[in-house]
Simulated assay, not measured.
Amino acid sequence: MSELVIIQAMQSLTTRLQAVTTADGWQTDIGPAVHTGWPKHLILHQQIDPPVVAVHPSTDDRVSGQGGNIKSTRTVEIEVIASQHDTPPEWLDRALHDIRGALVGLDRDIPRVITAEAGSATWSELEDTALVRLIVPVTIDYTDHYGGPA
Rank of each mutant, 00 (worst) to 15 (best):
G105V: 04
G37S: 15
A116M: 14
Q18D: 06
T139H: 11
D93G: 03
T129I: 06
S2C: 06
V136A: 11
A82G: 03
V138E: 02
T129V: 07
L96I: 01
E127H: 10
T143E: 13
T143W: 05
R74N: 02
H97F: 05
T22M: 12
Q47F: 08
G65V: 03
D86Q: 04
R108T: 10
T59G: 01
Q46N: 12
T139I: 02
I6C: 08
V136Y: 05
I6D: 08
R62D: 06
P50D: 05
Y146I: 10
V132Q: 13
V55A: 12
A33S: 15
Q84W: 00
V20Y: 07
V52K: 00
I99T: 06
T59W: 00
D144R: 01
S2Y: 11
A23S: 13
N69H: 07
Q66Y: 07
P50L: 04
P32N: 13
A9M: 14
Y142Q: 03
V138S: 02
S72A: 06
G101W: 08
G25V: 10
I7A: 13
A23K: 08
G31M: 08
H97C: 03
D61F: 04
T36V: 14
T14W: 01
Q84N: 01
A82F: 00
E117T: 15
P51D: 08
H35I: 08
Q46C: 11
A54F: 04
L134D: 11
A118R: 15
H45K: 08
D49G: 12
P137N: 15
E77H: 01
P50A: 11
A54H: 07
G68P: 09
